[in-house]
């Protein structure tokens, strides 16, 4: 696995993103404006956070389908801790993040201790966590947060949406960890050949526990931002977000079989999807047409990328 090969897919994708931006900008003068682009960044933050950590999960050869449900459960917990338990909002946010992390850790434990394949484990917790969100909330939503809380989801810092800073920080940290540290190399090693990694003394289970916990944390962070952006909690928040995140990750060239993938690829995948959603809408394409095109782009991109290196790294 050389750096050259890694770059291949990302390069193709980058070219595609630039092409898409040019074409979409030509379709509508309102597309390529600073305001619109920053606003799109705001809208893609939640999926982005989840997709970045999902990259790690998929690189280890796993998958996490429960992220949407963790998002919903953390959002409900945030409201319940603050409103029903009367805790300060800062503490409630912290506890909501903990709930998400613990939910992720629980996924990790089922996967490592009981050797349940990640797809099955997280299919199960997908139902469980969403169910807990519904049960705890009793279908009530919590509203009326103090004004400072809305800065996170609706405000700006230095002219850039607050949450976009967060996304940026998380992306850089994740890219550094995956690309340059021992942890990153352990992640790749786990995904390429788990048995070999185990035999060479890597603590594979600990890597996985950490990654699934991080996935839960990312979903909880997305929940806090989402609640701040829409100023209410609902137990159905985040439904289907797992498929959006996975789409961005695989579009970004991460192999679903593990061992291969980069954060930069995931970010390019995210940007391409968001640009298409927004740009096509501005160009007058309806949302049903837009999702048809996104589906086609996903298949074609991977197909083209495969044509460039047909060496069977499927």
């Amino acid at each position: 696995m050389t750096i050259k090969k890694l770059l291949r897919h990302e390069t193709i994708l980058a070219v595609l993103v630039v092409l898409a931006l040019i074409v979409l900008a030509a379709q509508s003068p309102r597309f390529f404006t600073v305001d619109n682009l920053l606003n799109q960044g705001r809208l893609m933050t939640e999926v982005g956070l989840i997709a970045i950590v999902m990259t790690f999960v998929i690189v280890t050869g796993g998958i996490d389908l429960s992220v949407g449900s963790i998002l919903g459960m953390s959002a409900i917990m945030l409201g319940v801790f603050w409103k029903n338990f009367g805790l300060p909002l800062e503490l409630a946010i912290f506890l909501a993040l903990m709930v998400g992390t613990l939910a992720g850790l629980f996924n990790g434990l089922i996967i490592t201790r009981f050797k349940v394949p990640p797809l099955i484990a997280t299919l199960g917790t997908l139902a469980l966590y969403r169910g807990i969100a519904e049960g705890v909330s009793q279908a009530r939503s919590v509203r009326g947060y103090p004004d400072w809380f809305y800065v996170l989801g609706q405000g700006q810092v230095l002219g850039v949406p607050t949450q976009l800073w967060l996304l940026g920080i998380v992306a850089v940290v994740a890219a550094v960890i995956l690309g340059m540290t021992t942890w990153g190399r352990m992640t790749y090693a786990t995904g390429s050949n788990e048995t070999a990694a185990r035999f060479s003394g890597l603590r594979v289970d600990r890597v996985k526990l950490l990654i699934y916990s991080a996935s839960g944390f990312a979903a909880a962070l997305a929940a806090v931002i989402f609640v701040s952006r829409v100023s209410t909690t609902r137990s159905d928040m985040g439904t289907g977000v797992e498929l959006d995140a996975i789409t961005a990750v695989v579009l970004g060239g991460t192999s679903i079989f593990g061992g291969r993938g980069t954060i930069i690829g995931t970010l390019l995948g995210l940007i391409l999807i968001q640009a298409l959603k927004n740009g096509l809408s501005l160009a007058g394409v309806k949302s049903d047409g837009t999702i048809v095109l996104i589906g086609a782009v996903l298949i074609l991109t991977i197909l083209i990328s495969n044509l460039f290196h047909r060496d069977g790294t499927r």
């Binding site: 996975i246 589906g295 782009v297």
Partner: peptide, 23 residues
């Protein structure tokens, strides 16, 4: 023959079929 992982193809098909149906 396209050597695309099935989850990728079917994620794409999910969008195409769902959008196409409403269209």
């Amino acid at each position: 023959y396209g050597k695309i992982p099935s989850i990728v193809v079917t994620l794409g098909m999910l969008s195409i079929l769902r959008g196409g149906l409403v269209s």
